[in-house]
């Protein structure tokens, strides 16, 4: 498989004989990035697996309506972020968890997940990140792990760059405090 640009993939999807093939290429191109983005938010591999499949099904169902106002990458990321946040929101509702307990529950998931094999240091950092509010966690992960520009993040999260910068710096301070404590 050659590395297609997003525009080429979209053209192949719209004009080609086999949209399924084009979609498959899109999945292959983005599956890992999206998987890790969601995984860092919901922690459990099994939950992530379900959510990632849902995300790509949604992409498939809506791709013919995609007009390209934002990039394909940004659009998929936005769907992924919304799906992951909705999952966490529903989880909170289902179990009536206040914010603090959500972090605690995610920590427990981390400890129990057979597909988590981080060092003590990595685990400590992850716990610190999990103690952040959901949206702040998204900002931290996108910036720190995905090294995303604020400009791009602003399009995904529909928030101003200034607010995102503030949120990220605030998150870093909290993590430093958590780990240093």
């Amino acid at each position: 498989m050659g590395s297609y640009t997003d525009d080429e993939l979209l053209a192949l999807f719209r004009n080609g004989d086999n949209p399924n093939y084009a979609f498959n290429l899109i999945v292959r191109k983005y599956q890992e990035t999206i998987y890790w983005h969601v995984r860092r938010l919901v922690v459990s591999h099994d939950d992530t697996d379900d959510i990632v499949q849902d995300i790509f099904i949604k992409v498939w169902q809506s791709l013919h309506k995609f007009r390209g106002e934002s990039g394909l990458y940004t659009w998929i990321y936005r769907i992924a972020t919304n799906e992951a946040l909705t999952f966490l929101k529903n989880k909170k509702r289902k179990f009536f968890l206040p914010l603090v307990d959500v972090g605690k529950q995610l920590e427990e998931t981390l400890e129990a997940d057979v597909y988590y094999q981080g060092s003590e240091m990595e685990k400590q950092i992850q716990k610190a990140i999990l103690s952040l509010p959901d949206k702040q966690r998204v900002v931290f992960n996108l910036r720190y792990y995905d090294e995303m520009k604020y400009e791009e993040m602003a399009k995904i999260l529909n928030t101003s760059e200034g607010a995102l910068k503030a949120s990220y710096h605030h998150a870093v301070k909290k993590i430093e405090k958590f780990v240093g404590a």
Binding site: R40, Y116, M121, I125, Y145
Partner: peptide
């Protein structure tokens, strides 16, 4: 403040 902070997150 995290001199040994590697970017790995430990997820597999």
């Amino acid at each position: 403040h995290l001199p040994h902070f590697q970017k790995g997150d430990g997820y597999n």
